[in-house]
């Protein structure tokens, strides 16, 4: 039985992609839910402000956006790793589809 040794970059990149999509999902659920519950169908009498922003914009968009900016630092410098990308093969001609190569292998 052949033992598969998947490239380190593939494994790490897959994990990082899953994490990125998880962050996207959390941001989507939080922002849309918060803004929908607090920012729709209100009157201006009930409105408060944080800096220039209506309360629901500040807590629903500005705060998570700021968290994402800060999160980018540990995401990029702690969670993501570095791996060699490898040498590029000569690409002046289109890479051959491996169809024939594989069939004859």
């Amino acid at each position: 039985m052949t033992h598969i040794v998947e490239d380190t970059l593939v494994r790490r990149a897959r994990r990082e992609a899953a994490l990125a999509l998880a962050i996207w999902l959390v941001a989507c659920v939080y922002s849309v839910t918060f803004c929908y519950l607090n920012g729709y169908e209100r009157t201006v009498d009930s409105l408060t402000f944080v800096l220039w922003f209506p309360d629901w914009v500040f807590w629903g968009i500005v705060v998570p956006w700021s968290i994402c900016i800060l999160l980018s630092l540990p995401f990029a410098y702690r969670l993501m790793g570095d791996e060699p990308l490898g040498e590029a093969v000569d690409s002046e001609e289109p890479p051959a589809s491996d169809e024939h190569e594989v069939q004859h292998a």
Binding site: A20, A27, S31, C35, G39, V57
Partner: peptide, 13 residues
Amino acid sequence: ALWIGSYMVVPIT
């Protein structure tokens, strides 16, 4: 702001 809000995660994704 909500329409464009998803740009908060665009750099990561």
